[in-house]
Design a protein around this nucleic acid. Structure first.
Lengths: 130, 130
DNA sequence: CGGTATCCCCTACGATACTG
DNA sequence: CAGTATCGTAGGGGATACCG
């Protein structure tokens, strides 16, 4: 990154640079990833059907997609047992588990502030003239 | 397994959303919200064009949509000055600012672990037979 | 069991105007 | 300046069926 002088303050930057947490949000908070990671962290090693049943509204196609993505990102470990019938188990990786405090932080914020968000919505929606 | 993980909330878990942080993720980490909140938190009060220029790749339509949503959720305060030409300023609310430690936590995780994610991706992609 | 393969729909988003 | 209005599209899921 030695091309740009430090004094060259850009008037605009691409979203990645505009927000340092952009990339990590894409990785951790893309759709379905939080229920999956949460389930694996809370209930430990699970088979495909267990996850499918626990998340309930997810389709097998999407569950596969998200699990592959999480595996590729190193957040989930997939283990295949060549038995009959075949068995596959998913577990959260060490890297994935390192997200636990972050998730706890998020849950804590939710517990303390979600009510305010809901109240704000009610207030906003009852404003006359919208 | 070692009992209850740190991120498990005692509040009843919705069987639909097998994940207590589902709602808060929708509020805080839906598309474009993090760059907007980050910008408002980092650079203070800003007018519409300032945000537009800073985020650069966002269109005015979408910026409006997201700002309205954030306003409705009580994370952003919109102030309209009926001047000629009109002036509108956006600032992060107290509730929105309460997300700052969370964002910092996220940035910290990213700084420490994003490299591992990228390495995991490289490893995964260089596996033969995919 | 643990997935693919297809088809299809919906809507979030982008592009391009235009206005008070 | 601070937005709307309108149109068009891509692709992320859902539903269903099928395979090793």
């Amino acid at each position: 990154m030695a091309g740009k002088p430090a004094w060259a303050t850009p008037t605009s930057v691409d979203p990645e640079n505009a927000c340092p947490i952009g990339p990590v949000v894409d990785i951790v908070f893309s759709r379905w990833t939080t229920p999956i990671l949460w389930s694996l962290n809370e209930h430990g090693r699970q088979r495909f059907v267990e996850l499918e049943r626990r998340i309930a509204t997810i389709t097998p196609k999407v569950l596969t997609q998200r699990l592959r993505q999480l595996e590729r990102d190193g957040l989930v470990v997939r283990t295949y047992y060549p038995e009959v019938p075949p068995r596959v188990e998913y577990e959260i990786s060490e890297l994935g588990r390192s997200l636990a405090p972050l998730f706890a932080h998020l849950a804590e914020w939710a517990a303390g502030n979600l009510g305010q968000v809901e109240q704000a919505r009610r207030d906003y929606d009852t404003q006359p003239g919208r």
